[in-house]
């Protein structure tokens, strides 16, 4: 296996701190190595972003009979980045009823992603 087979497969901009290191994911044979990070947290971030990027989804959900028409919600665990769009459509279709307390589970195990959609605030009835 020669050095020349190494190639950069992805550049990840680290967001752990404001320095913003450009971390390269480099393919060396069957391995992926990371270069350009300057701290351990940066390496962890790059590995996660390379193998399984996930995000907390924060959006709103429609409410019936609420003090406001929408309630802010989020997933209680990060979900796969590629599933965000599907999850957003699922949430858009859903309507919940007031009253609601922060932390209430509104959609359980959304799309089977092992994450619940929970209320970000209390919402009283109209």
């Amino acid at each position: 296996m020669s050095e020349s087979s190494a190639s950069v497969v992805k550049v990840i901009r680290c967001i752990v701190c404001p320095t913003g290191c450009q971390i390269q994911a480099i393919s060396k044979g069957s391995d992926i190595v990371f270069e350009g990070y300057t701290c351990k947290r940066g390496l962890e971030y790059a590995e996660q972003e390379y193998y399984e990027p996930k995000r907390i989804l924060t959006t709103t959900i429609r409410v019936e009979n609420g003090f406001l028409p929408l309630l802010p919600v989020r997933t209680d665990k990060p979900i796969l980045k590629e599933k965000l769009d599907e999850a957003l459509s699922e949430i858009a279709k859903t309507v919940v009823s007031a009253p609601i307390v922060m932390g209430d589970i509104l959609i359980e195990n959304i799309l089977g992603l092992e994450s619940n959609v929970i209320a970000s605030r209390n919402l009283t009835q109209k």
Partner: peptide, 9 residues
């Protein structure tokens, strides 16, 4: 790490 509404709630 919280959302804005959770923080203020």
């Amino acid at each position: 790490e919280l959302t804005g509404p959770e923080y203020i709630q």
